[in-house]
Amino acid sequence: MQPLAPGSLRILHLSDTHLTGDGALHQGSTDTTAALDAVLASAEGVPDVGLVVVSGDVSEDGTPASYTRLRERVGGWAERHAAALVTVPGNHDLREGFRQVLANGHVLGEGGRPLAHTLEYLPPSVPVSGQSVVAGRRVVTVDTSVPGSGYGLIADEALDRLRRALSDGEPSDGGSVVVLHHPPLPAPTALHEALRLRNAEAFADAIRGTDVRLVLGGHHHHHSAGSIAGVPVLVAPGVANDTDVVGAYDEESAHIDAGYLVVDLAADGSVWSSPVRVPRPDTDPLAFHLGADAVTRIIDAAG
C-alpha cells in the first residue's frame, strides 16, 4: 500500500464484528472471532494506521465477555501499531456491557495509549457518547442504538452532545470525524431499510456547516459510499458476513465473507478510501437466507 501522505490520518475501519461471549456461531454459520482474527491478520500489512474504528454491532449478545474479546484483539492490534481505538454501539449491542469494558468507546488515544475514564455509572437509557483528538482531528462518536429495537435513532440528548462537541472551541485544524452505526444513507435491502436511521435529516442539520470532514458507519454489512450535508459517508464491510445487495430487495441473504476499509483523511480534508476483502474459502459461501415472508415478520416485529 502507498505511503501515508504528510499530514494525513490513516484509519482502519471495521464494523459489525458480532462477537459472542461463548464463541457461539453468528446466524448459526459464522465463527466471528475467527473472522475478526483473519481481518486483523490481513491488516498487518497496512502501514501507518493512526486510528482504528469499529462502527457498531461489536457484540451479538451484549455480554462483557464479548466486549473483552474485542478489547483484547482489536485493542491489542492497535497498541502494537501505536494507533488509537474508537468504537460505538450498534443495534445488537447492550450499553451496560459495552460500558463495562469499553467505557465511552474511546478506548485508546494517540500512540495506542489507554485513555482514562471516570467511574460514573450511567443507566442503559443514556446513549454512549465521547470524543477524543487523534492526529489533530476531533473524533466524535454518536450512539444511534435504540434499546430493544433494530432501527437507528439519534436521541435529542445525543444530538445536543454532538452539536456541543462540534462547537466546542475553534474548529480543529484537521477537521472532525463522526462515527456512528446506522449510516445516514439509503439501505440496500427492505430489511435494512426498515432498520434505517430514522432521523438522518436531524443529523445532517447538526453537521452542516461544521468542520466535519468524514462520517463512518456500518450496519449494512456491505461497503458503500455517499454523502450527507456535503460530507462523505463511508460504510465499512461487515466482519461477520457480507450482505447480498444484488438479490431480491424483499429477501435477505448474506455470504460468509469479511472485509474492512483503509481510509486516508488528508490535511486538506480530502478523503481516499480502499475496501479490502478477506475471503474465507474453507466455508460454505452462504451465511443465511431469509425469504420475503420471514423478512416481513422481522420488519413487523421491529416496528
Rank of each mutant, 00 (worst) to 15 (best):
M1A: 11
M1Q: 05
M1G: 05
Q2A: 12
P6L: 07
I11M: 08
L12N: 06
H13I: 02
T17H: 08
L25S: 01
Q27A: 01
D31E: 05
T33W: 09
T33C: 04
A34N: 11
V39C: 09
G50N: 11
L51K: 13
V52H: 08
V53Q: 04
D57W: 02
G62R: 10
T68I: 03
R71T: 07
R71G: 10
W77G: 00
H81S: 10
A82F: 09
A83S: 05
L85S: 04
V86E: 15
V88D: 12
V88H: 12
L94T: 03
E96P: 04
E96L: 15
G97R: 06
R99S: 08
R99A: 01
Q100M: 02
A103W: 11
A103P: 00
H106Y: 14
L108F: 01
L108Y: 01
E110G: 05
A116Q: 08
H117P: 01
E120F: 09
L122R: 15
P127G: 08
S132A: 15
S132K: 15
A135L: 14
R137I: 14
D143M: 14
V146R: 12
P147V: 10
P147T: 04
S149C: 11
Y151I: 15
L153M: 14
L153D: 13
I154N: 15
A155V: 09
L159P: 03
D160S: 07
D160C: 02
D160I: 13
A165W: 08
S167D: 15
G174D: 13
V179K: 07
V179W: 12
H181Q: 15
P184G: 05
L185W: 03
P186F: 03
P186M: 10
L191H: 10
H192K: 02
A194W: 02
A200E: 15
A200V: 06
A202I: 00
R208V: 14
R208E: 10
T210G: 08
V212G: 05
R213W: 12
R213S: 13
L216T: 10
L216S: 12
H219S: 12
H219Q: 11
H222D: 13
S227Q: 14
S227I: 09
A229S: 15
A229L: 13
P232F: 00
V233T: 10
V233S: 03
L234T: 04
L234E: 12
L234P: 02
P237K: 15
T243P: 02
T243R: 00
V245A: 12
V246L: 09
Y249F: 11
D250P: 06
E252D: 02
E252L: 10
E252M: 08
S253K: 03
A254P: 02
H255G: 02
H255P: 01
D257A: 08
G259Y: 05
L261N: 07
L261R: 02
L261W: 01
V262H: 04
V262Y: 13
V262G: 09
A267E: 05
D268V: 07
S274C: 04
V276W: 00
P279H: 03
P279I: 04
R280H: 07
P285L: 07
A287L: 02
F288H: 06
H289M: 14
H289R: 12
A292M: 11
A294G: 03
V295K: 05
I298N: 00
I298D: 09
D300A: 06
A302Y: 11
G303I: 06
